[in-house]
Design a protein around this nucleic acid. Structure first.
Lengths: 343, 343
DNA sequence: TTCTCTACTGTGAACGCTCACAGAAGCATG
DNA sequence: CATGCTTCTGTGAGCGTTCACAGTAGAGAA
C-alpha cells in the first residue's frame, strides 16, 4: 500500500477554507490578511489559528489580479552577469536595495537579460505585470530595454545618469563631477602639477563628468591641460593597467594620477610598480568609488567615496514613489574624499 | 497645458479589447495566444494585427490564477550572494540553466535569500505560487529552506548531493568520489607517494566523498594514510593557502597535493611558491572543478572536470519533469581528468 | 425610548484570463 | 439524405482574491 500524496500536489487551501475553519467570512479573513483593521480580537485570533492549522498561504496571482500590484520589485541587469558579479560596488548596491525593500516587506527579484533573447523574454515578463517596478543598473548609456519599459509605463529607476536627458527618467547618481574636482584639488594641494587621468568610457555620462571635473580644476588652477596626460578605460582592472602604461610612455614626467575607478586604479598600481615608480613618493594615485578594491590595494588607495548605501536607499524611495503615482525624479548625491596611503 | 497621460498609467488593453478589435471572440484570441491550434489563418491574422495595434500583453496574473502555473522558474541562493558571485563555477551553472530554460521560453528569476528575514520573505513568495519550481544551489547540507519548500509541495532540484538522504529529493551532482579517485591514481602514476589533501568542508557530501575517494585509492595501492597529510578547507582561496601551509609544516616531505577545488588550489600554489617548492617538480598539484581558476593559475592546473553544462541541463530537465508530475530523481554525472602543467 | 455613531461582519461583483462545452460549417462516407 | 468526422468559433463558468456596500450589534447621548 503506497501513500501517494507527496508527489501529486494536493489543492492548496484557499481563503474559503480558512474562513470556514475559523467560522467567519472571506471578508474577515481578507481583512486580517491585510493589516487587521476593523477586526475583533476574537475573530483575529480565530483566523490566525485557522491559517496556522490549514497552512494557508495567500494566492498572489488572485490578489494581484484584482489589486493590480504584485508587491515585488525587479532588479534588472541588461548586460552579461559576470560584468556585475565581479564588481564589488554592484554587490554593495544590490544588498542595499534588498535591505531598503525589506523594510517594506517587498521581495527583490534579480533578472538577467544579457542576451537579446533573454531581454525579450524578461521584458515581456515585466510588462505582463509581474513586478511593480524595476531597478536598473546599466553602466552604458541609453538602454533600449529601459526605453521600452518606460514606454510601457513600468516604473523604473536607473542607477547612474543616463545619456539621453529625457526629463521623464528617474535616476540616482553620485556627483561625479564634484568628486573628480575634490580629488584633483587634493592632488594639486600636494604640489603635483603633472596630473594624469585614466577616465571612464566617454560614452557614459559618468565617464564624461569625471573627466570634466578634472579639466575644470586644472583650468581654474592655471595648470595647462595636456592631452598626453589623458587616456580612457572601461573601468576594468586590465584597462587601468594598459592605460597607465600608455600614460607613462606619453608623459614620463607624470607625478600624479587620477583613475576613474578603484578597480582600474589597482591596475594602475601594478603598471607603476613594474615601471619602478614608487607610490606615493614618485606618483600620487587617486581612485574613485571607495570599493573594497581601494582598501585591498597596496598601498591603500585615496579615493572618492560614492555613497552606495544612500544611492540604493534613494533608488528604492524613488521607485516606490513612482509606483505610488508620483512623477519621475533625479537625485544627485554628494561624494566624499577619502585619504589613504596612495597620495 | 500639460499632457499628463505618461505619469498615470492608463488601463492596459485586455483580451476583450483585442477580440473586439479583431472582430472575434475572447476564446479565439486565447487560442492564438496559446499556440494557435484550431484557428483559421484569417482569424489568426486578424488577432495578430489587433495585438500589434493595441499593444496587448497578456496579464500573467489572470492566466496563472486559472492555469495554476506561472511559467517561470526561480534560482534560489540561500547563502550570502557574494559567496556565489565570486565563484566562477556558479556563473557557468547559472548561464547553463538560463540557456536550458530559454529553450522552453521560461524566464529565470534569481532570488537572494541570504538573511533569515529574506529567507522568510522569499519562501512565502515561492509558496504563494509565483514560480513553478526552484533550482537550488546550496553548498552546505540539509538546507532548511529546501525542506520547507519541499514540504509545501514546490518542485525543487538541488545542485550537489544533499546531506539528509531522503529519497524524495531531486538533485544533480558530479561523481565526486570517482573524480577524486582518478586524480589520486594519476598522482600515484607519477610516482608520488606522500600525497597531501586539502579537502572540502566535511559537513558537505561533496567534501566527504572527495576525501573518501582519496583514501580509497591510497588503501588500494597499499600506501599508508597519514593524518598529517590531511586538512580541510571551505573552498575559498584563502583556506587553500592556509591549509597548504599547515600541511607543509606537518609533512615537509609531501610530494603531491590534491586540492578539492581549483580556487583553493590557487591558494595552495601561492603557499607552495612562498615555501620555495617548485610545481610540478617538487610537488604535483591537482585541483577539482576545472573552473576558469584552473587555466588562469600558474602553472595551469591539472584538475577534475565537473560537467557544469550537463549539470545545468539535467537540473532543468529534472525540474520540468517534476513540475509535469514525475517523481523526484537523482542524477550523478561522470567527471573527467584534465591534465595540465601542475602535475 | 430613539437616534446616532462606531466597531465589526457578510455578500456579491469584479479582476482578466482559460477551459470545457456546445454548436456551426464543410466535407467525405454510408 | 442522414451520419459522422474534422475544423473552427462563441459562450458561460470559474480560478482566489479584494473591494464597495449593506447590514448588525452595542454604546452613549438626547
Amino acid at each position: 500500500m503506497t501513500m501517494s500524496n507527496t508527489g501529486g500536489r494536493r489543492r492548496p487551501p484557499t481563503i474559503h477554507d480558512v474562513a470556514r475553519e475559523a467560522g467567519v467570512s472571506r471578508g474577515t479573513v481578507s481583512r486580517v490578511l491585510n493589516g487587521g483593521h476593523y477586526v475583533s480580537p476574537t475573530a483575529q485570533e480565530a483566523v490566525n489559528a485557522a491559517i496556522r492549522k490549514t497552512g494557508y498561504v495567500v494566492n498572489r496571482h488572485a490578489r494581484s489580479l484584482i489589486t493590480g500590484r504584485s508587491d515585488s520589485i525587479g532588479f534588472l541587469l541588461t548586460e552579461p552577469q559576470e560584468r556585475f558579479f565581479e564588481d564589488p560596488n554592484f554587490n554593495v548596491l544590490l544588498s542595499g536595495c534588498t535591505q531598503a525593500l525589506a523594510a517594506h516587506d517587498i521581495p527583490l527579484l534579480l533578472m538577467l537579460a544579457g542576451t537579446p533573447d533573454e531581454r525579450r523574454r524578461i521584458t515581456r515578463y515585466i510588462t505582463a505585470g509581474h513586478v511593480d517596478g524595476v531597478l536598473l543598473v546599466s553602466s552604458h548609456s541609453g538602454d533600449p530595454v529601459a526605453d521600452e519599459l518606460r514606454e510601457a509605463g513600468v516604473p523604473l529607476v536607473q542607477c547612474g545618469k543616463p545619456m539621453g536627458l529625457g526629463s521623464k527618467v528617474s535616476y540616482v547618481a553620485a556627483d561625479d563631477r564634484d568628486g573628480a574636482r575634490d580629488m584633483v584639488r587634493h592632488l594639486l594641494s600636494l604640489g603635483r602639477r603633472r596630473i594624469g587621468v585614466v577616465s571612464g568610457p566617454l560614452d557614459t555620462p559618468g565617464g564624461v563628468d569625471r573627466l570634466a571635473g578634472y579639466k575644470e580644476v586644472l583650468t581654474e588652477a592655471g595648470v595647462e591641460i595636456d592631452d598626453a596626460l589623458i587616456v580612457s578605460g572601461d573601468y576594468s582592472r586590465a584597462s587601468g593597467e594598459a592605460g597607465t602604461e600608455r600614460l607613462l610612455a606619453q608623459a614620463p614626467d607624470m607625478d600624479a594620477l587620477f583613475v576613474a575607478s578603484d578597480l582600474m586604479a589597482q591596475g594602475a598600481l601594478t603598471a607603476l610598480h613594474r615601471a619602478g615608480r614608487r607610490v606615493p613618493e614618485d606618483v600620487s594615485v587617486g581612485g574613485f568609488d571607495d570599493s573594497s578594491a581601494a582598501t585591498e590595494a597596496t598601498p591603500a588607495l585615496t579615493t572618492v567615496r560614492q555613497p552606495y548605501d544612500r544611492i540604493s536607499a534613494e533608488m528604492v524611495r524613488l521607485l516606490l514613489a513612482q509606483i505610488g503615482g508620483e512623477d519621475p525624479a533625479a537625485v544627485i548625491l554628494p561624494t566624499e574624499l577619502v585619504k589613504r596611503e596612495s597620495t
